[in-house]
Amino acid sequence: MASLSKKNDQPFDISDYHFTETPKSVKILFKVLTYLFLGMCCLVVILPLLVVLIGAFKTHDEYITTNVFTLPAVPQFQNFVTAFINGNVMKGLLNTAIILVISCFGTIITGTMTAFVLQRFKMLFTRAVKGVFLFAALLPNIAMQVTVFQIVSKLGLYNTIWAPCILYIGTDIVSIYIFIQFLDNISVSLDESAILDGASYFRVYWSIILPMLRPAIATVLVIKFVSIYNDFYTANLYMPSDDLSVVSTALYKFIGPYSAQWEVIFAGIIICIIPSLVIFLFLQKFIYSNLVAGSVKE
């Protein structure tokens, strides 16, 4: 938010502008219109989802004969049971959670360390490394997975839970950028005073920088959650074993020539959404404030 606060520092004198008084009736009209408009926007977001929710509780016959908004005569839970069992969702949730924890932890440690060095030590080497990281962030990874797969396999990580973890940690350049941009706003005077007190650089990183980076860490956690939770490709290719299934692969199982019926697919979608929804409801405010912190700096 550096750029913003700088803007605000500029003298801004509201009396330079000549505003005209708005009549009260017009104000009320505006208010009504505002609510109407926002309500409409929310409706646009909700309606496609509502159809999924309703559809998931229908029988197949109801699904193909009744209007999308018609509620089922008797809510069917069978679709959820089918999706839950066929998708092996329980195991998927556990594996997803493990991967999330490891990857987030790893990203935060390596990301903050990298950012600390790259942002605080301005040497030719760190500048060059920073440039390389920027370049890497722009690479389209379309034709790269053959090589990536070879490397993962050579490291003996194929079909282990470490394969996605290390890929999520090792290819996350955006997080490093969020940390670097955040560090731009943390004054070096803190580091300097600690160094004057005889602290080592590691100590500066650990006791000063890391705690200061908390909002950025939160941002990275949120972005990581969304991307890892929804990523199908990595888990599908690198851990085909049943014991290593994740939530997003469960949903993909319902697609393709051998796919299931819509009601079951909808139930699968709902099951996949629920964990996101729960986390979202609990952490709503937190997510907003921290996403903002991250993206503004991107």
Binding site: T110, G111, M113, T114, F116, V117, L118, V129, V132, F133, A136, L139, N141, M144, Q145, V146, T147, V148, I151, L155, I166, L167, I169, G170, T171, I173, I176, Y205
Partner: peptide
Amino acid sequence: FLLIPLVLLILFTLIPAVN
């Protein structure tokens, strides 16, 4: 501090990109 991130970057981004 840069050892692990750079190794990962080289392994999973730069080598594939050069390839």
